[in-house]
Design a protein around this nucleic acid. Structure first.
Lengths: 354, 354
DNA sequence: ATGAAAGCGCTAACAA
DNA sequence: TTGTTAGCGCTTTCAT
């Protein structure tokens, strides 16, 4: 004999996901109407819309993104390609992008290239089919191999790219301020410790320094390093000392810290003997001793702008400007140093704070 | 008259994406066979498989993820929920997750909660339908509101959660080493400057310190701060000085730097007067002056382990161990300080390097 | 080992 | 304003 039991509990296993059909049934309308009510509410009678909304609410309906993608081709995803998410400078841009994207119900697919230019192209290819477009930060190569993006729109941060939107962080005005600051403190020489030559930002900063130095009456010397890192800057310290300069500007804060560490090791004090300026204003810059004079770049705004450009708002290229942040790694020229030229190890002189 | 021109160039506009049908046609097999050749090659005759593979190659076919999702329910996406991507500690975990995921053709959807516990739940809900599972870093709330994850698998980093996989970074052995290091330098007192009470990691570190201090013959005092930040630590400095301690361990490197900065402001030198130990070993820890003695947590391994657990490899909970990294922010107890007790401003004593 | 056929959930033409 | 219909591209029984 066959026994039929009434099942009182919900069936086990993953419950079938509620679809637009369930909503339609409950709201007593056609599925297509539900779809309309959700995507173009204005094309539906107010009363109907309310019924649909209520049904959606009650059933906890969430549209199936995959199905939507199949029909529309739009994924609701945005790929963010970043050289190094470990760097707080990029971290804060990514954070801003993600927040802004979320407000538009866009999801962020993250790809970190580990500073390897080739990876940019690879990950772009891998992601191209699953996103509506790209935000590419400080591209080193992708801007030349655009076909990797497929037909997707892209916003480039820290590099202008023909035919694409971009967000540029400009430093000229802030650099101008910084050099005046140094000049006021009596400095007449400046070393710029450069970043990677393939980086647009490095070029922009270098150019800003060059352009500004003349009018301010300052002699500039460029010193290159193999990489924009703490270590490379640390190692470049002997060359810095040889130059006899009293002031130095580094491509980024990490490098500024590398210089300071290298100088400290040789008994040269900052800002007592040499003034140092960084770039970016990463959070750590305010936390070290001496707190780092630097040029802050508006990374949050850059992230927001990138998403807005992505959505077609705003101008096709957005320029944002850095601001000069004087702290304690810059100070007056001391006679000793100004007249010293090259310089060897020497006992610390107090560090200029207290 | 109708003129028909031969079109030699590719049609303009977005070319239709190549589908499995195109591949099938080219390989002269049924579309279903193509699908099989791609997903379960062993179920297809070698010769056929080769033909299919060649066609795929020639046409540059990439399977449509959305279509696949519709059939299988698997998205190939993994959500990573992180409190603050700006913190290099999380940054490096995320980097490791992303890399490891990519090797398995998983894509990473990033969500940053900005340290707001509620956001964890919100973003989990928002993402649940579009991912195969979650990696949640240092959860503050989501571990209690698991229903937000839907039926997805999840790996929790820095918190054990019943029924879920987790990756735990344990510090006890490293803390033991650190305290022995301090004891050897003559320290008999230690302040632990705590992190957020709702953080599992903070509890674990506190417990490790408590447990180890006795056997090492060290007196421990806990000082709490409102947040695990540089600023909070900076502000806690007077309390630290009141305690009369000669050594301090902070919940993380940022806090350690905050303490050092606060001490410097009052003319107290590190490690001359007080030894300071951090936690995490963020890159910056090695770059400051004095370089920070700290406990390194294997964030990269944690990220890799998280993805492996996610894929069902490895044990359901993975424990990884921190290592003690002595640098220059710890030093011998000076008699002056050891007998001083509470302490006011005083001129710097040289900083202990050079 | 391969082919045939159905359908995942949604949206956009088009019809009424 | 709402309903009808078709189909996006793929995988997966089932049949051959």
């Amino acid at each position: 004999m066959l026994v039929v039991r009434r099942v009182t509990s919900v069936p086990v296993g993953t419950p079938r996901r509620v679809t637009i059909l369930d909503v339609a049934a409950r709201a007593k309308v056609h599925p297509a109407t539900v779809s309309r009510a959700l995507t173009r509410p204005e094309k539906v009678a107010p009363a109907t819309r309310v019924r649909v909304e209520r049904a959606v609410e009650q059933l906890g309906f969430v549209p199936n993104r995959a199905a939507r993608v199949m029909k529309t081709g739009r994924t609701g995803n945005i790929a963010v390609i970043v050289p190094d998410i470990t760097n707080p400078y990029f971290g804060s841009m990514v954070r801003a992008v993600e927040r802004t994207a979320r407000e538009s119900e866009l999801q962020v697919l993250l790809a970190d290239t580990g500073e390897h230019p080739r990876e940019e192209v690879k990950v772009a290819r891998a992601l191209a089919h699953d996103v509506d477009g790209f935000v590419v930060m400080s591209p080193r190569r992708l801007h030349r191999e655009l076909e990797a993006l497929g037909s997707m729109p892209a916003v480039f941060v820290q590099r202008p790219v023909r035919g694409h939107a971009s967000v540029l962080l400009r430093s000229a005005p802030a650099v101008h301020e910084a050099l005046i600051h140094l000049a006021t403190l009596g400095h007449r020489d400046l070393v710029f410790l450069g970043g990677p030559t393939s980086s647009w930002a490095a070029g922009e900063r270098r150019a800003a320094v060059r352009k500004t130095s003349g009018p301010v009456g300052m002699q500039v010397r460029m010193i290159d390093t193999p990489a924009p890192t703490f270590e490379a800057a640390f190692d470049a310290v002997p060359r810095v000392l040889d130059s006899g300069t009293t002031a130095l500007m580094a491509f980024n804060d990490q490098m500024a810290l590398g210089v300071i560490a290298g100088l400290a090791r040789l008994g040269v004090s900052v800002p007592g003997d040499i003034s140092v300026i960084g770039f970016d204003d990463v959070p750590m810059a305010a936390m070290v001793a001496p707190p780092l004079t630097t040029i802050r770049l508006p990374t949050d705004e850059a992230g927001v702008a990138a998403v807005e450009l992505f959505q077609g708002e705003g101008t096709p290229t957005t320029e944002l400007f850095g601001t000069f942040v004087p702290r304690e790694s810059t100070g007056k020229v001391t006679k000793r140093r100004a007249s010293a030229g090259a310089n060897g190890a020497r006992p610390p002189s107090g560090g200029g704070r207290g």
